[in-house]
Design a protein around this nucleic acid. Structure first.
Lengths: 247, 247
DNA sequence: ACAATAGTGTCTATTAGACATTATCGA
DNA sequence: TCGATAATGTCTAATAGACACTATTGT
């Protein structure tokens, strides 16, 4: 393994190089009509900016005068576009290279967040113009996004789908008060496969993820007990994944 | 955490703000004498640089002329300090704020890697001077590191210990050929608790993580079958964590 | 033969999945 | 009463943990 250091010209440049551009992008998921959707922005047309008129993830340059840290920048972006604060915000990772932005070497740190359908109602506080929800239908996810945002979105989807197998993440896609059936449907929508009711209920209840509250959801059939997240601030980890579907 | 933004209005600054400093740091773990250790560097004394003479994680400013992307920068750092290439390199996350570096708003993207004891032999290709292995003994991990590196190291440790519960990560801490007992000891060293032999063997074998090779490790007792990683390039995920120790 | 470690088998507890059964509403 | 969904119970399969037992070396 240890081969000789190369080092003809691997000496770090002593002359001050231009600093990379530092950005933050946010992947905002929601669940509407049982379908997973992501928030996209239409970039300004003919503005001199790169990727004019293309769709992109919300985000932008870190404002060192405004943003206390990277997460604050993500929260500022989220608030500007949706008008709500993030109930859950997770750092997905960072992408940095010379080619992803035509303006030069850039680094973006990507966050992802989950909103309930109620919070996802645009126009309430965000600037609804040039912002829209895009359904995640198939496996192919919008290859036409600006920059490398198709890659970022695919990574966020992969992280989301992976963590849904063993965490309480979909608890942030349902409203504050929900029935267990609704929660199960949120899991199934993200996973793309049905789950068994009995096993699902045992899992979320025995993990202490949810707790019943006073009240039921009435309907044309037997009313369902309402629940809420027991500790909304903390993600719950299950000791196992759901079993894979039988082949 | 830093509180209210300095600026009265939340309007993004139109005047071009100074770009943040962009850095990469690398947390390099190894297992020596059954003990987890991390590579630290002694910063130059009286050089005008911040945190002179303090211990720090290896890393530094991204060289946009040299580094194709963030991971390449991490690999360059790793190679410069140890003389080896990374068999496994994972991005841990990014930390960015105005206070972590006295030179101003900075972002560091942290990678972590695992080396076998053989690769961890300093002096072979790396610059052994001002570089040393620091044992991870207790829960308290070197609060005296430069910058916020104590935080970064703690995060790396947490990620490592967490993923050991359900992945093949310790496969990178043992030499290319190993016995199942040696692999089990690697798991136990990171986890800090003993594992049951039978269950451990069933798990790693049925997951296809390892495969037997010709040869045994001879010793003063019954020889042990040698194994290697079946697909060294891919991390294996187990469908369950190890069960927590009985209370 | 003995000590020591490698490797396997047996039993039990836990739990996910499949599926049946009961419960409770509106119409 | 009936249809529909909520909620629970029963059975089975899979597997981790505990632990006993066998196997194979050097001395």
């Amino acid at each position: 393994m240890p081969s000789a250091p190369v080092r003809p010209s691997r000496t770090p440049s002593k002359t001050a190089l231009p600093r990379p551009l530092v950005l933050v992008d946010v992947v905002i998921f929601t669940l509407r009509d049982g379908r997973l959707e992501v928030l996209l922005m239409k970039r300004a047309a003919a503005s001199g900016e790169p990727f004019a008129d293309a769709w992109a993830l919300p985000g932008g340059v870190v404002d060192t005068g405004l943003d206390a840290d990277l997460a604050a920048c993500a929260r500022r972006t989220l608030r500007a576009k949706t008008g709500v604060d993030a109930p859950y915000l997770e750092q997905l990772g960072s992408w940095g290279n010379a080619l992803r932005d035509p303006r030069g070497w850039s680094v973006t740190t990507v966050y992802f967040t989950l909103l309930s359908a109620a919070d996802a109602d645009l126009g309430a506080g965000g600037n609804a113009v040039d912002v829209g929800w895009c359904p995640i239908d198939s496996e192919r996810v919008r290859p036409d996004l600006a920059f490398d945002h198709a890659v970022l979105l695919a990574a966020a989807l992969q992280r989301l789908r992976s963590k849904v197998e063993y965490t309480s993440l979909p608890g942030y896609l349902v409203p504050a008060e929900f029935t267990l059936s609704e929660l199960q449907h949120a899991y199934e929508s993200v996973l793309g496969r049905p789950l068994e009711k009995s096993a699902f209920r045992t899992r979320v209840l025995s993990a202490g993820m949810v707790e019943p509250i006073d009240g039921v959801r009435a309907g044309p059939t037997r009313p369902a007990q309402l629940y809420r997240l027991a500790r909304p601030a903390e993600l719950v980890f299950f000791p196992r994944t759901f079993n894979p579907p039988r082949e």
